[in-house]
Amino acid sequence: MSRIVYVNGAYVPEEEAKISVFDRGFVFGDGIYEVSAVIDGKLVDNDAHMARLGRSLKMIDVPAPMSDEDIIAMQNELIKRNNLTEGVVYMQITRGAADRDFVYSKDMTPSLVAYTQVKNLTASAAQKNGIAIHVVEDIRWQRRDIKTVMLLAQVLAKQEATAHGCQDAWMQEDGYITEGASSSAFIITEDGTLIVRPNSNAILPGCTRIAMLKIAEEQNLKVEDRRFTLEEAFKAKEAFQTSASGFVTPVVKIAGTVIADGKPGPITRSLQEKYIEVAKAV
Results as ranks from 00 to 15, higher is better:
residue 39 I to R: 10
residue 253 K to E: 15
residue 57 L to H: 01
residue 10 A to I: 05
residue 176 Y to F: 15
residue 151 L to V: 12
residue 279 A to W: 04
residue 136 V to P: 03
residue 103 V to N: 05
residue 37 A to S: 07
residue 80 K to S: 15
residue 179 E to C: 09
residue 138 D to A: 06
residue 56 S to A: 10
residue 27 V to T: 11
residue 76 N to A: 05
residue 64 A to T: 00
residue 214 K to R: 14
residue 133 I to T: 08
residue 237 K to N: 15
residue 92 Q to D: 02
residue 138 D to I: 14
residue 118 V to A: 04
residue 69 E to G: 08
residue 107 D to K: 07
residue 267 I to E: 02
residue 219 Q to I: 15
residue 91 M to W: 07
residue 116 T to G: 02
residue 25 G to P: 01
residue 179 E to Q: 10
residue 245 S to W: 05
residue 45 D to S: 12
residue 14 E to V: 14
residue 188 I to S: 00
residue 91 M to Y: 10
residue 236 A to G: 10
residue 200 S to T: 12
residue 238 E to C: 11
residue 44 V to A: 07
residue 160 E to L: 14
residue 91 M to G: 09
residue 169 A to R: 03
residue 123 A to C: 08
residue 251 V to W: 02
residue 217 E to S: 10
residue 34 E to H: 03
residue 239 A to D: 03
residue 21 V to Q: 00
residue 86 E to F: 04
residue 210 I to E: 09
residue 128 K to H: 12
residue 49 H to T: 09
residue 233 A to M: 12
residue 127 Q to K: 13
residue 46 N to T: 13
residue 276 I to K: 13
residue 209 R to F: 03
residue 156 L to M: 15
residue 218 E to S: 14
residue 181 A to P: 08
residue 177 I to M: 07
residue 37 A to F: 05
residue 32 I to M: 03
residue 142 Q to E: 15
